[in-house]
Structures are given as structure tokens and as C-alpha cells.
Amino acid sequence: MKDNKILFEVENLNLWYGASHALKDVNLKIESNSVTAFIGPSGCGKSTFLRVFNRMNDLIEGVKIEGSIKLNGVDINKDLNPMDLRKQVGMVFQKPNPFPMSIFNNVAYGPRLYKKYSKAEMIEIVEKALTQAALWDEVKDRLDRNGMSLSGGQQQRLCLARTLAVNPEVILMDEPTSALDPISTARIESLITTLKESYTIIIVTHNMQQASRVSDTTAFFLIDENRTGFLVEYGQTNEIFFKPRDKRTEDYISGKFG
């Protein structure tokens, strides 16, 4: 396997929602240009953990974080501005959420926050992003149509293009295909495989088949008797799904509990 550098280093991460301990002592590393899947039963904190990487938990009141996450060696909570962080770490959500604007303006929204572009520059950026998201051919003739007039699968690819337009290093995906039909799902999955050559992707999914299809590394989370989420094991996807080290992982992937 390629000798990829370590992009994210998570050490002893703990998270509280008010008094409730949501995540306990998480330690893991994310390699660059890889796809990492977070799997586990509902409520185990995998989406919460995903949101730690771009500090979206900051938007919720009463959230407290202990431990460190370093992006390329920089602590993202102490030494980095959330806005700068989110420029490098983008996110695609479970339910497609295009802005009620034209397709063009949707994609241009992100870049315009940081710099003033000329019309020609903007067109170039938008085209590149839409092409990377495999949407350009379908919408190039109607860029001024409202983004919400697209189908579900197209909307999700639009959201992906929107994220790609700011040229992040990392793309976080929170169950990106759970609201889509199988064909749209397959398209997004094949996109993930293509995109990993240029980006690092972390995907939360409750669909194990999806995790085994697209990811290189898989991290398995569980919830303990105190309703606190923790990391059980993580490693190469082939290993996790072929012969996991931990019996709890074995039981989960065999469908012994949901």
C-alpha cells in the first residue's frame, strides 16, 4: 500500500453535550488520500465525531471538547480559526441542502466568501467543480436554474460540487446517500473512489455494504452502558470485514445486533 502521510491525528478525544458524555477517549489517525468509513449502531456518536473534524459541533450550545485533533500537526481547536478550518475541511450532509439560488451561485457561494473573482475566473471554478462532481454535462445549459429544481441525486452532487469549489483537503460525508435511490447512490460511491486521488474522505454510513465497497479504512464505534460512544477498533477495511480483531466488531458485522 502507498505510504501516505498522516493528515489527522486524534488523541484522547472526549466530547460532552452539556452533562452528557457523548464520546470517550477516541484515538485514531487518518491518512491522506484515503477513504475512511465510520460505522456503528445508531446513537453511537459517529456523526458527532465526524463533526469534530470541521468544528460544526461549535454551532451547538453547551458542547465541550477535551483532547486534541491535529490537522497536519496543527491543533484545530486551539490554533486554528473555524472559518479557515472549514475552508480546508468541507462537508456533505445527509439530506441534500442546496441553497435557494441558481446552480451557478450555489457553487460560487463558497469561493466568493474568500476572494473577489472576475466573471471568467468564477466560470472556470464552477465548471471545474461541477465536472469533478460528475454534474457538469447535465446542468451546463441551465446554470441559472434554481438549485432546488434538480432531482435528489443531482442535488447531492451539487452539494458536493459546492464543497469542492473551495478546494478543500478533506471532504466529510455524513450518510451522503441514505436519502437517495440505488442508482444515485452508486454514482456517488463511484465519485468517492475517483475523488480520493485528490482528496481525503471520511464518510459516516450505517450501510455496511457501502462501507466495505468504498472505504480503505474502517473505524467501528459502539455505545456503552452509560450511553457514551467509544471506538472499538479501526483498521484496513478488508481486515475489519474479513477477520476483525474484536469480537464485538465480528458480532456487529455479522448482523448480531443493529
Partner: peptide, 23 residues
Amino acid sequence: ELISGSRALGATKIETIWKVVLP
């Protein structure tokens, strides 16, 4: 969700209000 989407792209609260919420 729209507000999340905007913040996730790096917009500040005011930018989000001005560009997404108000329209």
C-alpha cells in the same frame, strides 16, 4: 440545513444571515 451548509463552507454567522437566511 441551509444554515449548516453555509457555515460548513466557512461562512460566518453574519454572512450566512445576509446571503442565505434573509433571501
